[in-house]
Write a protein that binds this DNA or RNA. Structure first.
Length: 589
RNA sequence: GGUCCGGUAGCUCAGUUGGAUAGAGCAUCAGCCUUCUAAGCUGAGGGUCAUUGGUUCGAAUCCAAUCCGGAUCACCA
């Protein structure tokens, strides 16, 4: 690209017209320049231009290009092997290859954000993996990243669990029942709903309308009463609330740890739910917001193609949006953020659009940095998961199931023979969790996805296992062969290398050279799937090479050393990329 | 009804700012282990890129309309 710019010293035309692509495999060459864009400008036939350009490039930059071919409007350039070998000698042992220089930008990524009335389910997994991975990707790409979790720890949902616990638990605790805290609390949430349904049914049987029965069910009134007591600071209620939330957090900690996920900062809605009112007051003064007759406060977004939105109830209490306004400003003030990323399902697209627009209208500086990383819902083959219908797949169960599937398949293949018990356990974890993470991250976030249990445990093809296996094969070779011991200069002085890389070798080096670009793209698009695809292709390229050429019995000592450097760099790159996704690679499998 | 998102092989998905004969994996079929790990490799079949029109040297990609699927438009969070 840079070489090309010198060919056109005349800056009168747009250099953006130059487009360079990788050459398709059916043609000879490595990179292709598309000639059509220049034709008009230079009034030359494409093929003539291609020849002139090709001759010029190979003469001026023999260190870069060794040959060219012009095929109907496309200039295919063959890159000098030396270029790739230089890249290899510079980077094969570079721990930081792919890590970008600090950008000076501060980014917060909020994800997970669970409710504290029930355990995490399968739908949360996509959120958790996505947030964790994107946070890492941004970090590697140079940003300073704060991983945040906004815990939804208050509200009617938790009161429901509390009421049911009071009625039915007879003082059961996680310790006394042996049930994980989040599951225990979740059980009483389910119990509440059962009881509520029964009461509604009963009231309707005695002649009440459904609508009225839903309002009058005693257990629901009790929960609402409890919420009011909580907001009034009632000691007994607050103390029960603290206790049950503590159980849930202990449970979440275990789940997060099992998932390999962490956070730098926790926000709790019980601390933030009152924020935002001051912002609303300011908005009223500025005249951006208006008050209706019943004293409720609204913003009119109809001019922007949206609706009117409530920001404060008539009685002065906040709604969801009010809290979110407050939290957005709080985050910004806490860290001085350049960007604030929200990992939230696409059902909240409208909410997030409105949130950003309101902040903008209020003149809040945090508005511009807000980005909604929206992802599609995870559905089962039978349709959408519904907690009320019991079709929810529990996250803890899912993890365990994946690990035991991994164990079963590993044993069937006899792959863990000679492993110690502890090594086996670790391996099953790596494979099971890796498969799950990869399965959820390999698809573009904004597409909704169907979780197919059978497919997710498949360990062939486009999976984490495939990549882990390639890594293990490399480690196996490196255990037997001496790491490159010759100085790079000596290795590459050998004529046997300079005279021609095999296609499979060159393909790998070309891919490795492109790794930093892949990281940059993944960061720019906030898409871990870019890395999934990259790693799969690299592993595939390695497998092809491995099948075709021997490392141990290479054609010359220099070539052997060069191949060892190459596979070291492949393994390092795979680890670097996969660790951003939270996937570990075993040395043996 | 308004807004937003999606529609690519039987299935699940890639496809950079428009570029050559649209690519992977799964599934199906045919080959490859006395030699560095066969959870692998090689090959075959499989397509009206939802439909129609437009923009141009050139469209899966950009524009318009239509069809199908989903989300959302709460004094729930």
């Amino acid at each position: 690209m840079e070489a090309l710019q010198h060919f056109f010293p005349d800056q009168s035309f747009d250099l953006g017209l130059i487009s360079v692509n990788e050459t398709k495999s059916e043609f000879t060459g490595d990179y292709t320049v598309v000639l059509f864009p220049f034709v008009k400008m230079l009034r030359q036939k494409p093929d003539e231009l291609g020849n002139t350009l090709g001759v010029w490039l190979t003469e001026q930059h023999p260190e870069l290009f060794t040959a060219f071919q012009v095929v109907s409007g496309f200039l295919n350039l063959t890159v000098n092997d030396r270029f790739f070998l230089d890249m290899l000698s510079r980077n094969w042992n570079n721990q930081c290859y792919g890590t970008a220089a600090a950008s000076g930008k501060k980014v917060m990524i909020e994800y997970s954000s669970p409710n504290t009335n029930k355990p995490l389910h399968f739908g949360h997994l996509r959120n958790n993996f996505l947030g964790y991975a994107v946070g890492n990707i941004l970090k590697v790409n140079g940003d300073t990243v704060v991983k945040a979790n906004l815990v939804n720890d208050r509200g009617i949902h938790i009161c429901k669990s509390m009421v049911a616990w009071q009625h039915f638990a007879q003082g059961a605790t996680p310790e006394s029942s042996g049930i994980k805290g989040d599951h225990l609390v979740g059980d009483y949430y389910v119990r509440f709903n059962d009881e509520y349904k029964a009461q509604v049914k009963e009231l309707m049987a005695s002649g009440m309308s459904e609508e009225l029965a839903e309002k009058e069910a005693p257990i629901m009134k009790e929960a609402q009463q409890m919420l009011r007591a909580w907001e009034a600071g009632d000691e007994a209620v607050v103390s029960l609330w603290k206790q049950m939330n503590a159980w849930v957090y202990a449970g979440f900690d275990i789940t997060y740890k099992n998932l390999g996920i962490d956070f730098d900062k926790f926000y709790y809605e019980s601390n933030t739910y009152l924020l935002g009112k001051a912002i609303v007051e300011k908005g009223l003064e500025k005249g951006v917001l208006f008050r209706k007759e019943d004293n409720s406060v609204w913003i009119d977004l109809t001019a922007d193609g949206l609706d009117q939105k409530l920001l404060l109830r008539g009685d002065g209490t906040s709604v969801y949006m009010t809290q979110d306004l407050g939290t957005a400003v709080l985050k910004y003030n806490d860290f001085g953020l350049d960007r604030s990323v929200y990992v939230i399902a696409d059902e909240q697209n409208y909410h997030m659009q409105v949130l950003q627009l309101i902040l903008k209208k209020l003149g809040e500086p945090c508005a511009d940095g807000i980005f909604h990383l929206s992802y599609g819902m995870v559905e089962l083959p039978s349709g959408r998961m519904k907690s009320r219908e019991g079709t929810v797949v529990d996250a803890d169960d899912m993890i365990e199931e994946m690990i035991s599937m991994a164990e079963q398949q590993t044993k069937e293949n006899g792959k863990a023979d000679g492993f110690s018990g502890e090594e086996q356990k670790q391996l099953y974890r790596m494979i099971g969790l890796g498969a799950l993470k990869f399965y959820l991250l390999r698809v573009d976030p904004k597409k909704k996805m169907i979780f197919n249990p059978q497919e997710s445990i498949d360990l062939h093809g486009f999976t984490a296992t495939f990549i882990q296996y390639a890594h293990a094969r490399i480690c196996s070779v490196l255990r037997k062969e001496q790491l490159p011991v010759m100085p790079a200069a000596d290795v590459f002085a050998g004529k046997s290398i300079g005279e021609g890389l095999f296609e499979a070798e060159k393909h790998i080096l070309k891919m490795l050279e492109q790794y930093p670009v892949a990281v940059e793209t993944a960061a720019k698009e906030m898409s871990p799937s870019v890395l999934c695809n990259y790693c799969f292709s690299l592993a595939q390229a390695f497998n092809t090479f491995y099948d075709r050429h021997s490392i141990a019995k290479a054609e010359s000592e220099e070539k052997k050393q060069m191949r060892l450097m190459t596979v070291v760099m492949i393994a390092r790159t795979l680890r670097h990329a996969m660790s951003m996704l939270g996937i570990e690679l075993p040395e043996k499998m």
